[in-house]
Computed example of a mutant assay.
Amino acid sequence: MTDEPVELEDGDDLETPPAGEAILVELPPEEAGARLDKTLAAHLHDISRARLQALIADGALSFAGLVLTDASRKAQAGLYRLVVPPPTPAEPEPEAIPLSVLYEDAHLIVVDKPAGMAAHPAPGSETATLVNALLHHCGDSLSGVGGVARPGIVHRLDKDTSGVMVAAKTDAAHAGLSALFAGHDIERLYIALTRGAPHPRSGDIATRIGRSPHDRKKMAVLRSGGREAITHYKTEQAWGPAEKPLAARVACRLETGRTHQIRVHLASLGAPCLGDPLYGSGPPAAAVREAMAEAGLSRQALHAAVLGFHHPITKKWMRFETKLPEDLQRLTAALAEKL
């Protein structure tokens, strides 16, 4: 172990690593100074560098009692501890779960995902996911959805976010859709019901988003590191006093698609999604709380309303739009009535 103190850098975390199998790697002095993930990957023959980077970002690597979450920092000589969590089951089972299918052909399927359904199996949501439902619905025509890294699912909605999703049924469609999302050549519009209204009422927000240095379960706007995140937003309706609304309906168009992007951006503007368990700091006004209870809201008030893209095989422009689900419709009506 090195005698030099380990200084906290952007992206480092003091939390305890997750439970799982611990792998110890001792780096000699001659390997110090190189990029950390590249240096460690040379010692971990069963773990790819990409997988190592993901594990580091999740807080699985520690050194001298400090959890490191910046894979690009310089390596130091000494003993590193990497905790590898148990793998997600590689073979999800088909489940007869009803799907709201908006479109389907030989290459892809578009669905309106309900709130409460995870996109793919993960710890805590091993069954009843969209992948399980698609395996049953599509059978052998759905290409590659049986893997751990959600092949076939080219984008993801949070478990408690409802709305339009597309999944590939063939390798060619999967590659084409992945390229569209990677190039941001996709129309994506979300509707959020927020605590208060964003300030200013409309605009563009461009930040860098990465894992919070204070809570590895959350994402955060970062001064450095992370990835570029751009959201275009517009307040469509506000309830309450004009100078200080108590709630609002906000349309958000994504230019990029980072984890929790809209939820983080709206919270950074002082208007988190109503019902958001991670980013909704501070209680809403009493009348808004009454409206939420009356509507039976039990998740973040966020819906992926529009998805548009060029079909990866036919190149035809396709656009799908869905209305707010019943819980958000009830919440909208209750807000209008009470405010």
Rank of each mutant, 00 (worst) to 15 (best):
T2H: 12
E4A: 14
P5G: 02
L14H: 12
L14S: 13
T16M: 15
T16Y: 13
A19K: 14
E21D: 11
A22T: 15
P29L: 09
T39H: 10
A41M: 04
L44S: 03
S48V: 00
L55G: 11
L55N: 12
D58F: 06
A64E: 08
T69D: 10
A71I: 05
R73F: 03
A75Y: 11
Q76C: 15
G78F: 05
L79I: 11
Y80C: 01
R81G: 07
L82P: 03
P94G: 09
P98Y: 02
H107K: 09
H107D: 15
I109G: 06
K113I: 04
G116F: 09
A118S: 07
A119C: 13
H120E: 13
P121G: 06
P123N: 08
G124F: 10
G124D: 04
G124Y: 02
S141W: 03
G144V: 03
V145A: 15
A149G: 10
P151E: 01
D160C: 07
G163W: 08
A168D: 03
D171I: 02
D171F: 11
A172R: 09
H174L: 12
L177R: 04
L177G: 13
S178K: 04
G183M: 00
G183K: 01
R188Q: 01
L189H: 09
Y190P: 03
I191K: 05
R195T: 12
S202L: 08
G203I: 06
D204T: 14
I205A: 01
T207L: 01
I209E: 01
I209N: 02
R211Y: 08
S212Y: 10
R216D: 02
S224W: 07
G225E: 12
G226E: 12
Q237I: 11
Q237K: 14
A238R: 14
A242C: 12
R253H: 09
T256I: 00
T259H: 04
H260F: 08
H260P: 06
Q261C: 12
V264N: 03
Y279G: 01
G282I: 13
P284D: 01
A285W: 06
S298Y: 12
A301S: 05
L302E: 03
H303E: 07
A304V: 02
F309I: 13
H311M: 08
K315W: 12
R319W: 05
F320C: 02
E321T: 15
L324K: 09
P325M: 08
D327G: 09
L335Y: 11
